[in-house]
Nucleic acid binder design. Sequence first.
DNA 1: TGTTGTGAATCTCTTCACAGCT
DNA 2: AGCTGTGAAGAGATTCACAACA
Lengths: 212, 212
Amino acid sequence: MVSEKTIGRLSLYRRLLTGLLDENRRNIFSRELASLAGGTAPQVRRDLMAIGYSGSPSKGYDVADLAESIGSFIDNPGGTFGAIVGAGNLGRAIMAYFEDRRPRLTLVAAFDNDPKKIGSDICGLRCYDIADLEAKASRLGVNLGVITVPADTAQEAADTLVSAGVSGILNFAPVRLRVPDSVYVEHVDLTTSMEKVAYFVRSSATPKAREA
Amino acid sequence: MVSEKTIGRLSLYRRLLTGLLDENRRNIFSRELASLAGGTAPQVRRDLMAIGYSGSPSKGYDVADLAESIGSFIDNPGGTFGAIVGAGNLGRAIMAYFEDRRPRLTLVAAFDNDPKKIGSDICGLRCYDIADLEAKASRLGVNLGVITVPADTAQEAADTLVSAGVSGILNFAPVRLRVPDSVYVEHVDLTTSMEKVAYFVRSSATPKAREA
DNA sequence: TGTTGTGAATCTCTTCACAGCT
DNA sequence: AGCTGTGAAGAGATTCACAACA
């Protein structure tokens, strides 16, 4: 009912709002939030309309309240528990990136097939044998998987995650995963992102700079 | 004239096609390419129409020739030279990811402010002092910048890259960059990607799985 | 006056459907 | 028969423009 794109922007708005909160900002108008987010004011208002949030024509939106409302809309109330599959360079970078854990979104384990990594702690995350992925992930209640293994084992990792009960996957491997319709997959394709930028470097015909 | 989304898919098609080439596949129909790319057959045909490529109703498309045609459309004939700004976890992961350099897209330098890194080679890439970014980048002919510094220095990095003559930026910092209209920016927002997946984990109302 | 909330218009992208070819 | 190439229809997302309100 609420589009994928809107969810993405709401996530961004929340991050901007929490930043503003730290500076003790109380209220904000759609115009300014749009400018921070790199979008337009009507767009911001539409997005907030989608989650049924209302501001006031005189004060705009209440920063703290809006941030909270977005949170209660996009966060899973039961919590989201992620596992990283593949503790290589990229996997470790992701772990480090999310080390400041958000309350409703926590990484709970990493998996790899390298004996040197198995059993150790990486970026504060326990690394298990990938052979135990299905058992461990379902035991730990993992519902989100992050795939950072090479292309040739990505589909296998996805299948195992699905068997373990995961219903969302963030995939960094350069392969299109086949999963049941009930599982959501977000592809982050670094090669394509890079090649897109390279294309627009070439053609001076630059479109407006927008989100990925 | 050709949309951003089409460019992204063309990049993916090319990668799939080069994979097929290694298996000595000669021809392919839009249906199969679509299935590999996670899209639809008419979509593939439209995308190829956009670059003026024609197949034959009997044989479909010639794998090698199509891969080459896509290349000559999206690659910069003069070459694309990228610099990584920020040699932290993520920056190093990106360097490792692109170590198998493509002929028309090469990373030529890394920049950081950590004295331990400056002067050393990381993943086969020389790391320079970020204070020398503008001078070094323009001397090396860098036209694409990859920003993997923390949020608070990302805008500064972008400004310097622009001064150095870069016209495309791949930004991993969780900030919306302000750049001149002539510069293309692609934002890869890991937090948002993660939160989007988390949202769809929650709502069993899953849309079709698509690209980022 | 300056803002929000929103129907309507617009723009963009995708899918349909079929003529034309092999 | 089965495919490609593509005009036309359809869906979706964004922007416009303005009523309602402080």
